[in-house]
Design a protein around this nucleic acid. Sequence first.
DNA 1: CGATCAGTTCGGCCGCCGCCGAAGCATCCC
DNA 2: GGGATGCTTCGGCGGCGGCCGAACTGATCG
Lengths: 243, 243
Amino acid sequence: MSEALDMATVAALVGDPARANILCALLDGRSLTAGELAYAAHVSPQTASGHLGKLANARLIDVTQQGRHRYYRLAGRHVAAMMESISQVVAVAQPRIRAVRISEDMRNARMCYDHIAGRLGVTLADALRENHHVEFADDGGLVTPSGETFFAKLGIDLDGARQSRRVFCRPCLDWSERRPHLAGAVGAAIARRLTELHWIARKRDGRALTITPIGWSAIERSFGCSLHDHTVPARPALRVVAG
Amino acid sequence: MSEALDMATVAALVGDPARANILCALLDGRSLTAGELAYAAHVSPQTASGHLGKLANARLIDVTQQGRHRYYRLAGRHVAAMMESISQVVAVAQPRIRAVRISEDMRNARMCYDHIAGRLGVTLADALRENHHVEFADDGGLVTPSGETFFAKLGIDLDGARQSRRVFCRPCLDWSERRPHLAGAVGAAIARRLTELHWIARKRDGRALTITPIGWSAIERSFGCSLHDHTVPARPALRVVAG
DNA sequence: CGATCAGTTCGGCCGCCGCCGAAGCATCCC
DNA sequence: GGGATGCTTCGGCGGCGGCCGAACTGATCG
């Protein structure tokens, strides 16, 4: 009974457009400053500050101060999971025509809290499934023995992931592609490893990802998939100079 | 971007105490009349009607008319999953002293959408895990080969459950016990089968469950667990007469 | 057919909450 | 120290939305 009241409180926090925008902006797992979040939420700094205070007070987000900046981030995976499940309800309940313009960068490859989403995420998940390295059900999955050796060869530490007490392997309905990509501990481990190998890299301030020229062929080779659906990799020299 | 707006809309629907109460009341998967829901939400019938209209309009609940009654139910598992994930955030974010009085009936055994929760749910999950019939990770799990035969012997159709495209097996943090019970397709199949066998039965209008005298020993025997933590089964003769 | 009951619709009241301007603190830089 | 900049607090305005009383619809029953 009182549980429902607490749930209403939490839901009401997410139920404000500005706060929902803030939480969505944090969904990629990074820390953002109050100013950046105010901009993302399309509200003034004072207003954002109020919202951030409420979210932090309810322990949906955490803060760390750094100089005169305050960095906010999601309080944990459980918050990301909640946002995802709300998004699922939206997808099921309001299957309206997707007139919304999704940036091509985001569609191609992006981070979804701590794993890879977008065309790249779906392509990788398809490849892993086709090669019987993983199996999916509606809201769960598992890594096959052949998958174990495959991930080991890639340098992905599955035992470590398993110890994290997270599920190994979980399909997550892709927001833009409407087909599952790989989430869970394995999804996070893959994203971590591919970043480490510089096969993928975050674009400057955004959830979008770049597939590096090295990564392009390396991913196609090791995952046995084709990335031809993706746009050509952005000129890396330019990016390095710009960065 | 617009996705965040939609999410805010859905979250705002859950964010009202009366509506949260309504959704929680429907969490056991049954259909309730508008009047019952008004009572559950502690609001007048007119007010409840307004809320129900909004929830139905947003496709969070479905309606069927029967005579002069209108029966409302959750629009699907995705809604139950969302409510569960919100509840998880509440549990993690507000670990305050549980001063709330939980009814002993509810703590002992209850339905959680379509599977068994409460002490019984946790006990069953523990037994299944101890006997290596299932394995759990943080947010996923699997049925072992020994589990397959175990469930088959109980008359639980795992293949059918697998075809439903739901995860086989998923731990779900128990609301009252703070430890995992078994959810997913297997959880639902177990609940269905145990009801079929009359080992458990719903108490009259509520999520709470009764363990029948037959069920008491049968469950202890077949699952290899002790139910001594549970209260003695309520007098069945009385219940039959009353029902 | 009137009476009753379940449920919804209408209308108006009221309070909560999101919003921004202005001011108040910190921190950093010269 | 002075003056930026980043963020928060305060205060008052305005509107959305939840609430209930009253009236309406439609089903059931004698």
